[in-house]
Nucleic acid binder design. Sequence first.
DNA 1: CATCCCCGAATTGTTCAACAATTCTTCGAT
DNA 2: ATCGAAGAATTGTTGAACAATTCGGGGATG
Lengths: 247, 247
Amino acid sequence: MTSAESGLPGSSGPTAAGSNPASGLAAAAPGSAARLRLAVPSVADRVAAELRLQLAEGLLLPGQRLTESTISAELGVSRNTIREAFAELAAERLVVRHPNRGVFVATLGPGEIHDVYTVRRFIEVSAIRGGGSPERVAAVRAAVEEGRAAAAADDEEALGSANQHFHGAIVALAGSRRLNTIMAQILAEMRLFFHKATVDAHFYRSYLDDNEKICQALEAGRLDRAGDLLLAYLNISEEKQRAVHGD
Amino acid sequence: MTSAESGLPGSSGPTAAGSNPASGLAAAAPGSAARLRLAVPSVADRVAAELRLQLAEGLLLPGQRLTESTISAELGVSRNTIREAFAELAAERLVVRHPNRGVFVATLGPGEIHDVYTVRRFIEVSAIRGGGSPERVAAVRAAVEEGRAAAAADDEEALGSANQHFHGAIVALAGSRRLNTIMAQILAEMRLFFHKATVDAHFYRSYLDDNEKICQALEAGRLDRAGDLLLAYLNISEEKQRAVHGD
DNA sequence: CATCCCCGAATTGTTCAACAATTCTTCGAT
DNA sequence: ATCGAAGAATTGTTGAACAATTCGGGGATG
């Protein structure tokens, strides 16, 4: 057992560290105060988190095969643990298991992209039509400003991030744990094919105004109008995606 | 009662003795199904399916602990495979993992129940407001009739099943794979705490008329009205659930 | 009598090694 | 050049092992 044992050496630098990889949503749950539990995630969970990260960064391209032994060696964890992580990721649709053939990074064809947008239309529009507490509306506003700042700094990566935060904040208006995680998974799926789109440096740029208008309508309490705007936004966004990905 | 090792559909039988791990799985004669490429799910998947079933039947009560070694022995599969199945179920929220303590059947408190209904209000109402193809509407009608037949036969179990089919069919109107699986998971979660409710033999009975009215509105193309009815239905249903479960 | 601590017992988390079953590849025969 | 069969590679699954952790039960102590 001469192999490294330090927690997840990782192939792309000492990532592992950090705390909650997929957090961003439920930062502090109301009510559960005495939860000083420093629950160290299991190795399988950390492996899954690492892969999720590499997936989000476009380091692992859709369709690419993930060989158990390779990842096992690269991350210094046993093949069995890798399989547990795969089960997690497969449940999130980020990877697909082909029996006896291996797991592959999920590929989203035109049909799948449409399906993702269908879910978004359902959830996001319903969420914004329901409105939310002032703090939650403020969170939406914060995401808009975050996007504006990123645009000013010409940071396309941050711009894409801010855009996702914007839509996450909209769903968070409903204050539902389950809806939040559903949305988080959908956004994770979208990152899978958004890398193709961001080659165009000004891809998100055009969304800035839309986000601003939607946010204003929301703040003004014109929820139906906000919903209509958001719906139009999603339709156009889907159209663009379809254009980028061969029909 | 149902004792006996509910051994995995397939076989595995009471081999118990671990001396011969050899296949006992595929009992199907290869000659008969030469054409049918029936992708046999992995053992881990079948274990997960079996547990899902026991969960749905109320054989495993919320809060109950699932010991790896016990299930491993009961189902005749290795502990490692059990863990893979657990990862699946945990991703579906049907069980919860307490680090170093084990996995437990998920318990849904009042807050969780409200959350489940929030998701249902979002998805089901949006789905019915969007309408659907005639075949899909017909599927909703079929679920209504299924419920009527179950009521006539005084089969409460079938009645509950039909009710779930009804709501599944409503979501299926949208024709979205992802929404369908999301709804399936939500319904699976609900089965966790519905067993408490069905002690009242006439629990679902009162829903029959509501379903009929909703279906009629849907068939008549009065989608907004159908949505309103469904929304009211869900609110009342949540109220009842909250009443049954000590608030 | 109550409290605390330490020590076993049981269970989980993780690894390793092995093997059957299946798929992929390559090479050779027709 | 096509086809098929031997061989290599990979997955699916098992079993055993061990460290780490939690749980429960005595004592020993105050």
